[in-house]
Structures are given as structure tokens and as C-alpha cells.
């Protein structure tokens, strides 16, 4: 068992850095908190300094920032229309946060905040909470039309409504688990293959030669993880946009 030498789970351990117990709860500043702070600082400094000059003809960094901005803006506009643009700061923040956290997690020895279900679940609940609160505030009870698609025969209605409700309830779950599982599984797989390299390498010359295979696999997996890190941030943002669209235009 690889766990003897290389524990693939070890990377997900949360270590307290500064102990802050408040009223029986542990609000310690941990490595998870540290990397959240680092991710936010990184994203914020990048966005702040790349756009500081506000040049008419953008520099490389500025066009990167502008590209992400335009990317998220068009994503939101396509999904939720111009009315959805009032959620733009939120979606942009969400995208940048998840993206930076995912990418930061790719570095060896770095902690991946998004590989913890509570983080992704909190973000997903934030999204769904905003959808529900905005939906009811904007449309009142007409928001419930979301669960009653038009043009369905009356006989099928209870079934369809039940399906719609279940699909709505499973949204935060699938949204959070998708991101969490991708990050977790990817990092574990990477670690397992890296563990193979180490344990094969310890077996002498033949093992060294054999270790090339898992090493190549680890390299390929790193590339895949880079893709997944960006893609999952994108998927998270796109689904957020779609859910926000439901809050803005409930009758579909």
C-alpha cells in the first residue's frame, strides 16, 4: 500500500498556523486560510497592478486582465442577458477566486483550498442563496414558476414539478461536488503516480527504468490537471451564470 511511504491524503491535511479558538469553535488561521489569503492577494495584486496604468493600448498583463474581464462578461451576458450584468462583480470574483485557488494548488507542497468540500459547498450555497433570495425579491411567488414549466400536460405536472424541485435542490450539491471531486481526485491521482515513481526508484536500476512510465504519466496528468483547474473554474462560473439566469427569468 502506497500509504506506507507516500500518503496521497497527506496533502489535504489542515495544519493550524495561528490558533484562534473562539467560544468552543476553532477559528484558527490554518494552511487553508493561508492559501485563501495568498490566492486572493495574488489575484487582487495582478488585477490591481495590471490595470493601474489604464493604458489605451494595453500591455501584456493588462490585456490578460482585460481578456478575463471580457471572457466573464460575455459568459454572463450570453447566459443571463444584460439584466444579469448586475451580478458581474460577483461572478467575476467567484471565477477569479476559484481559478486562482485551483491554479495555486497545482504547485507542489501548496495547499488546494478548493479540494475541501466545505469551501466549494459554501461557494455553491452562496450562489444558490443569491438565486433564491434575488428570485423571490424580484418576482415574489412567481419565482416558483421555475418549477412549473409551461406547456406540460396537467397529468404529468406533479411528476415534472417533482423532477424540477429535485434538480434544483441537487444543484448546489452537484456544483460543489464537481469542483471538489475534480480537485481532490486529480491531486490524489497525481500523488499516487508520483508515489509509484518514488517506490519504483527505490528498487534499484530496473525500478529506475520502470519508474519512467509513471513519471511520464505524472507529467501528462499535470498537464491534464492544469486544464481541469481552468476548466472547472470556467464550468463553475458558467453554471453560476445559468442559475442566475433562472433567478432573473424564472419562467422558462
Amino acid at each position: 500500500m502506497a500509504a506506507d511511504k507516500v500518503d496521497p491524503i497527506h496533502q489535504f491535511h489542515i495544519n493550524t498556523i495561528v490558533d484562534i479558538p473562539v467560544g468552543g469553535y476553532d477559528f484558527s488561521f490554518t494552511n487553508s486560510s493561508l492559501f485563501m489569503v495568498v490566492a486572493v492577494l495574488l489575484a487582487a495584486t495582478f488585477l490591481y497592478f495590471s490595470t493601474a496604468k489604464g493604458a489605451l493600448v494595453p500591455s501584456r498583463a493588462q490585456s490578460m486582465a482585460e481578456l478575463t474581464y471580457e471572457f466573464v462578461a460575455s459568459m454572463l451576458r450570453d447566459a443571463a442577458g444584460n439584466q444579469g450584468m448586475k451580478f458581474f462583480p460577483f461572478v467575476f470574483t467567484l471565477f477569479m477566486f476559484v481559478l486562482t485557488a485551483n491554479l495555486l494548488g497545482l504547485f507542489p507542497y501548496f495547499f488546494t483550498t478548493t479540494s475541501h468540500i466545505i469551501i466549494t459547498f459554501a461557494l455553491a450555497m452562496l450562489v444558490i442563496g443569491i438565486v433564491i433570495i434575488y428570485g423571490f425579491a424580484k418576482h415574489g411567488l412567481r419565482f416558483l414558476k421555475l418549477f412549473v414549466p409551461s406547456g406540460v400536460p396537467l397529468v404529468l405536472m406533479p411528476l415534472v414539478v417533482a423532477i424540477e424541485v429535485v434538480s434544483f435542490v441537487s444543484r448546489p450539491v452537484s456544483l460543489s461536488v464537481r469542483l471538489f471531486a475534480n480537485m481532490l481526485a486529480g491531486h490524489i491521482t497525481l500523488k499516487v503516480f508520483a508515489g509509484f515513481v518514488v517506490s519504483l526508484g527505490a528498487m534499484g536500476a530496473a525500478g529506475m527504468a520502470g519508474a519512467v512510465l509513471p513519471l511520464a504519466m505524472a507529467v501528462a496528468l499535470s498537464a491534464l490537471e492544469l486544464l481541469v483547474a481552468v476548466l472547472q473554474a470556467y464550468v463553475f462560473a458558467v453554471l453560476t451564470c445559468m442559475y442566475l439566469n433562472d433567478a432573473i427569468h424564472p419562467s422558462h
Binding site: A181, L184, A185, I188, V235
Partner: peptide
């Protein structure tokens, strides 16, 4: 997008295995 959403399903089962 379809790749990411579908792949997530496979990842779920991999997650269970892990």
C-alpha cells in the same frame, strides 16, 4: 464544457474509489 461536465461524473466514481 460538455467534456468538463461529463468528466465530472467519472471523477465522482474515481472519488468514491479513492
Amino acid at each position: 464544457f460538455g467534456f468538463a461536465v461529463t468528466e465530472a461524473m467519472g471523477i465522482f466514481s474515481l472519488l468514491i474509489a479513492l
